[in-house]
Design a protein around this nucleic acid. Structure first.
Lengths: 320, 320
DNA sequence: TCAAAAGTGTTATCCTTACACCCATGT
DNA sequence: ACATGGGTGTAAGGATAACACTTTTGA
């Protein structure tokens, strides 16, 4: 085949310089009906992605070009997630290495110009164990817990068995430990290591042991990275507003955060938090609601972005 | 030249697949005498780095191999920083694109096996405006402030002038704003944009307007990324201990954090914080000190790494 | 004895948490 | 009237910040 590795020359002693292909992959998130959704292409559970090409001025512009071409969706806020090299496909015999640089993008469904070959999928279709808004999903205690214990007990020595049990307990909140929504990536990696997700069993004839759709290549891992990053970021940076319409009620905002975090939030304390940090201001209008008293509409105070990085010191500084 | 770009084929409509070279670059940090130091090679202000090669099993192992070969220093803790594509050298006429994947590594000087061509440089040699342990450095108000105001006033329209002044004030704590040590990268980018650092003036005959050594290519930007990441990370993850000897006094720990943050810390509140979070335990020994009463020695409680991700919720969760 | 560093307490204040309760609208 | 969501108040507990002060060593 003509795209085998081409060893060009030795740049420095001890290592052979090598060319690789770079894939740009996007986790594009929007909200639909209180469900956090990710943009996929075709019917194949594939994230928008494409190779970095010479005509791309930068990594970001290359990514924007691919997403727009594949989905018709222009991107606003984007941030780099991670660069992977050891992908599933690395197991194949290709000598051409592929690395993928992944990005997280936040937008709104309405921004899509035209209908296209893309579709929005709730991210909980891929990670059903991550949605704790209606309490801990039954599958966590009924399926994952026993399978993970089984996996832990399959270790050779006792130390490893304990270690595995502890890791599972921390990640999934077993044994009275609290659930931590930020550990989405750790949970996926753990399930992968325990061979409980389909990706870890490619080529096997056995059915995937755990429900939850898989994705092409390592795309589910990239999505998990995006979810974890977004869940931790909403706590210290006002990024939720990228997902909101220009005007919204506080409950809509709360439902959005709940959808992302996969947990329920305390209403009045949440409102106080938002108002205390002066993240929003009233538009003056009210929403004529379905059922219930009309709610004030708010808009994001863009000024907060200019008030220096929001949160805080955490170090006990001297003098003042 | 024989390493010009080789356009292989069009993988997907709309973009030409292209091969690139991947450079792995390391910001290796250690402490020396209460100064945060970064590992450089040669006498050239260059971070350890080398091209990703086929024999490297993963990005991380490639990085470890290069650092060990170039400096004789084996790495412990490492984490990915960022992937850049638009480097200085992209301005040249090469059609072969180079992307660099950067990592942050934390170690101790003593871990170096043999003397080699590498040396440790205080990172404040490259960023003299970042060290506020002895108060705001004179250069900030005497040099940077006037030059940045000059730059702001050089903008075409009034809106941009205000915007630039505001950005400078936030980044450097002008106009009664508090200094925020985490903004190290923003500060460097601002100085670059204002053409106040040497890298922004390559090819010019003018002297660099601001003191502070520059580095090869975009290495100073990568170092700034590492500093910013480390400064924010020490606040919510116990990574400082990677830089500490097995046993240490609380003051040594404090001096280390102060060195990284570039700020002085309140002694007794710092101690309470450490003990409250149960990050350390007494070894039983005491340090026979130079000047002053002997101090208890502590060691890091590795168990905290296993107690689930340390810090906190920040979301006002419902029920509980 | 003094300087230098170790170490202990105490207080005011803020933030978080958890509850309780009232308001306005549509059916 | 009542269900549904909107919105306010408050009190307990914990964490933080700012001070003041005592203890133990070496020079």
């Amino acid at each position: 085949m003509d795209d085998r590795a081409k060893r060009i020359r030795t740049n420095r002693p001890g290592g052979k310089a090598d060319t690789v292909k770079v894939d740009l992959t996007a986790v594009v998130v929007a909200l639909s009906d209180n469900e956090p959704c990710v943009l996929t292409i075709g019917q194949t559970d594939t994230l928008p992605s494409g190779p970095l090409a010479l005509e791309h001025r930068s990594l970001q512009s290359g990514l924007r070009a691919w997403v727009e071409e594949q989905t018709g969706h222009p991107l606003g806020y984007i941030e780099q997630l991670y660069t992977f090299a050891d992908r599933d496909r690395a197991g194949t015999e290709l000598e051409q290495r592929v690395i993928s640089i992944s990005y997280l993008a936040l937008t709104r469904k309405e921004h899509a110009a035209a209908p296209s070959r893309s579709c929005w999928q709730s991210w909980y279709d891929y990670f059903p164990w991550e949605d704790h808004r209606a309490g801990t999903p039954p599958m966590v205690s009924d399926v994952l817990r026993p399978r993970l214990i089984e996996w832990a007990d399959g270790a050779d020595d006792g130390a490893t068995r304990l270690e595995r049990r502890r890791r599972a307990a921390i990640a999934f909140g077993f044994d009275e430990r609290p659930w931590n929504e930020d550990l989405a990536l750790k949970r996926y990696e753990l399930l992968y290591e325990a061979a409980l997700v389909e990706e870890a069993m490619r080529g096997s004839v056995l059915p995937p042991p755990v429900r939850g759709k898989s994705m092409v290549a390592d795309h589910r891992r990239i999505l998990a990275t995006g979810i974890a990053r977004l869940r931790s970021k909403i706590k210290y940076r006002p990024v939720v507003f990228e997902l909101m319409p220009p005007a919204f009620t506080l409950l809509q905002l709360q439902r959005t955060v709940e959808a992302l975090a996969g947990r329920l939030i305390h209403k009045s304390n949440f409102r106080r938090l938002i108002e205390q940090h002066e993240l929003v201001e009233e538009t003056g209008d009210t929403a004529t609601e379905t059922g219930g008293r009309p709610a004030k509409l708010y808009r994001f105070r863009h000024a907060v972005l200019e008030e220096g990085e929001v949160a805080g010191a955490k170090l006990p500084l001297a003098r003042g």
